[in-house]
Amino acid sequence: MTANAQKGTVRIELGRRYHFAASHRLHSAALSEEENCRIYGKCNNPFGHGHNYVVEVLVSGKIDPATGMIANLADLDRFVEREILDPFDHKSLNEDVAAFHSAVPTTENLCIEIFRRLKTFPNAKLERVRVQETSNNSFEYAGDNPQGFGR
C-alpha cells in the first residue's frame, strides 16, 4: 500500500473501550472503624458493592502502511483480555486482585494498577488509561508519560 502522508505533521492515538463488572469495598487498615466510616461512607459497607467499570485504553505509534493500523485490535483485545478482563471481571477487587490486598481499591488506584498491567503491551506505546466507575465518575492515569495529559 502507499506509504501514506503521515510525515510527522500529526500524531495519532488509538482508543479502545472495555467493560467489566466487579465488586469492591473501600476500607483502609490504617484508619479506625469510625474514620473508615466517615471517609468512605456507604463504600465502607463490609459486604462490598459493585460497579460496571469502563476502561478506556489509549495507545500511540506509527500507522503501519501495510495494515493502516497503529496496532492490530485483535492483539490489543487479547492482551487486555488476559491482563485486565480475565482477572477483574466478575471478581471482588479486594479479594481476587493481589494489588488490592494492601492498597484500597479506589478507582484512582484501580487506574494505576490497570496502567501498570497494560504498559508492557508490546505492539504500541500505552499513552493513558481512563477508568469510569459510574457514568458520573472517571479517572485518568498516564504514568510518567509527559504527553499523557493536557491535550
Binding site: V10, R11, I12, E13, G15, R16, L58, R151
Partner: peptide, 19 residues
C-alpha cells in the same frame, strides 16, 4: 463504534496547544 476511536493531534502540540 462507541468502543473504538482514533485521536489525531498536531505533532508537537503539547507546546502552544496544551492546556
Amino acid at each position: 463504534t462507541p468502543d473504538l476511536f482514533a485521536d489525531c493531534y498536531r505533532n508537537g502540540s503539547e507546546g502552544a496547544d496544551a492546556r
